[in-house]
């Protein structure tokens, strides 16, 4: 298993391509009459690890859902590598929140990962030896090869998260979106997942993570979007992830001692 060392990213990365991987312009989404996102602009750089940070109800998951076409925005344009997102669905992989999945579903670990290939296989073409080998390789990469035949409800939370990461890997997408992948998982899984995400970045892929743990943002990510219905701040972690911006995002509710703990004190 890989160990995810907390190496601050930066100098060793090649410069990001000029064209961002995902651009969001003037995105407004409402749930009934309640606004979930108000005129959000964001540009996630290609080949980087980005975090979306914000309090509960800030619209973080809604933003991912708008990119995926699961919610219909009131207004806004979303492009993936310059192409309207509706025509770029095959370039995006998605790892949902664990709570949104029916874990009792009659499906086994390897079947879930194979689902990542279904769109390319079309309606009827069977998964051949090449596809099965790819499924096995992706399961191996997240350390789940031995549990390939297990029903998904019989896994621990961390193992479940890794299965869905393997499904995203098998898609070989340029853009990978993850919704709270570290919520309720054990430390070993968190290390394994962040290790895989950093490998993906090394391959030149773009990873965007809805994240809740402020303490790990500077270790894990290159780029950050601070969101609370509106975009509060966005940019490289070193510039955008500041105590001021965080207080603005969280409505001034973050204790100074906590900010000091995560290395943002005295600003």
């Amino acid at each position: 298993m890989r160990t995810g060392l907390a190496i601050p990213p930066g100098p060793e990365l090649p410069p990001a391509p000029a064209e961002p991987a995902l651009v969001i312009r003037d995105l407004t989404v409402t749930w009934g009459e309640r606004p979930a996102l108000i005129s959000v602009d964001a540009a996630f750089p290609a080949g980087r690890l980005s975090a979306i940070i914000g309090p509960n109800g800030a619209g973080k998951s809604t933003l991912l859902k708008a990119v995926l076409g699961m919610v219909r925005p009131l207004s806004g344009r979303i492009t993936v590598a310059g192409i309207p997102v509706a025509r770029a669905r095959d370039r995006i992989a998605y790892v949902p929140q664990r709570a949104s999945v029916d874990w009792d579903f009659p499906v086994r670990v390897a079947d879930v990962v194979e689902m990542g290939l279904w769109r390319r296989l079309g309606l009827l073409r069977r998964a051949g030896p090449a596809e099965r080998a790819r499924v096995a390789a992706c399961l191996d990469r997240v350390g789940m090869a031995e549990l390939a035949g297990r029903q998904i409800g019989r896994l621990s939370g961390g193992q479940q998260q890794r299965v869905f990461l393997a499904r995203a890997l098998v898609q070989e997408a340029e853009l990978i979106l993850l919704d709270e992948p570290f919520a309720g998982v054990d430390a070993a899984t968190e290390r394994a997942v962040i290790g895989v995400l950093k490998d993906l970045r090394a391959e030149g892929r773009t990873v965007i993570v809805v994240h809740h743990d402020l303490a790990t943002v500077r270790d894990y990510f290159d780029h950050v979007l601070l969101l609370n219905r509106c975009s509060v701040a966005e940019g490289p972690v070193a510039q955008a992830f500041t105590a001021d911006a965080l207080q603005q995002t969280y409505g001034g509710r973050l204790p100074a001692a906590y900010l000091g703990q995560i290395g943002l004190g005295g600003q």
Partner: peptide
């Protein structure tokens, strides 16, 4: 004929939508 879309949208609607189903 529609096994894959049916299974995918039943199991994981968000993923299916993201895939364009």
């Amino acid at each position: 004929l529609f096994w894959r879309p049916l299974v995918l949208s039943t199991f994981d609607e968000g993923f299916a939508a993201g895939q364009g189903y």
